[in-house]
């Protein structure tokens, strides 16, 4: 039944998006994830207006204040304060900026470089392919967080270097994925048809083949967005990522781990923030995979 015709199919790009949304919508988890993620984006963009306090200002008279609903809490610090009297809610709100920024930068760098390397490897094959793929295998042979740590140790601990390190660690997945889809697309007849009509190699790579390889890459990008946030938090926790007093979630965890018994909220809220963001993005990724997978589309 695969070749039932759709003469009433979508006509414009807009309708294609509408069509995509209809498939995406069927996955309730993905929609919930998307709503959470969009809220987070709004919070990050409007942090300056939403946050009740400055993220780095220290209120010396309100050290380790519990959340408002607990005994001794105050409504001026809704989620309480940390060991030096900074408002947790404001720090979490500003922290979302870091997380999203890290995700966007890491994914863009890894995607662009990975796609280019994968395209080259898949198109030319031979020794070019061998060199690129062996280098990627070497990167994959290291435990990813360890490799990121080593890279940061060499480059020096800062948020920028952490992002570069994470992007390098994530690189091989994009290269492999791109290369595999390029190789399977290259053997299809429309590629040969393009060559018969005189399409050159560069155009063949980027205009003819690449758009047809995008679906798995988009899914991978969504999933590695969350990995990037997680890795950045881990590096921050180990003191190799964002440096205090930057309100990065992982760094916040690290700063407050000694209070885990005395003031559990200081550790809990950044942890919950990381968990729920990563979960939401993973749900979106799953939804994207379902909606973009042509095999499932027919059912």
């Amino acid at each position: 039944m695969a070749d039932v015709t759709q003469n009433s199919g979508p006509d414009t790009r807009f309708e294609l998006i509408v069509n995509f949304w209809r498939h995406f919508r069927t996955n309730k988890g993905a929609v919930a994830g998307l709503i959470f993620f969009l809220t987070l984006v709004v919070i990050a963009l409007g942090a300056a207006f939403i946050a009740p306090h400055s993220p780095i200002e220290q209120y010396r008279d309100a050290l380790l204040l519990p959340p408002a609903w607990q005994e001794g809490g105050s409504w001026s610090y809704v989620l309480g304060t940390d060991a030096v009297g900074r408002d947790l809610l404001s720090r979490l709100i500003y922290g979302s900026q870091f997380s999203l920024f890290i995700g966007v930068v890491v994914v863009s760098v890894a995607l662009v470089v990975g796609v280019c390397l994968g395209l080259v490897a898949g198109t030319f094959g031979g020794w070019v392919d061998t060199i690129i793929m062996r280098v990627m295998d070497i990167i994959l042979a290291f435990p990813s967080l360890l490799l990121a740590l080593v890279l940061v140790a060499i480059l020096g601990p800062s948020l920028l270097n952490a992002m570069i390190a994470i992007a390098i660690v994530q690189q091989p997945y994009y290269v492999r994925l791109t290369r595999a889809s390029v190789m399977s697309e290259m053997s299809r007849e429309y590629v040969m048809a393009a060559r018969v009509s005189g399409v050159g190699t560069l155009r063949l790579m980027f205009v003819t083949v690449l758009p047809n390889c995008m679906a798995p890459l988009i899914v991978q990008a969504a999933l590695s967005f969350s990995t990037a946030i997680l890795d950045a938090a881990a590096l921050g926790f180990l003191g190799m990522g964002a440096q205090p007093p930057q309100p990065e979630w992982g760094t916040m965890l690290a700063e407050s781990r000694e209070f885990i018994l005395r003031a559990p909220w200081v550790v809990t809220f950044p942890g919950v923030a990381i968990l729920s963001t990563v979960l939401a993005i993973n749900l979106i990724g799953d939804g994207l995979r379902d909606a973009l997978d042509p095999k499932l589309k027919r059912s």
């Binding site: 039944m1 039932v4 209809r22 498939h23 069927t26 589309k297 027919r298 059912s299």
Partner: peptide
Amino acid sequence: EFDTVDGRFRAL
């Protein structure tokens, strides 16, 4: 009949 995203499709 088969259920599809575009509604019921009568195959036979």
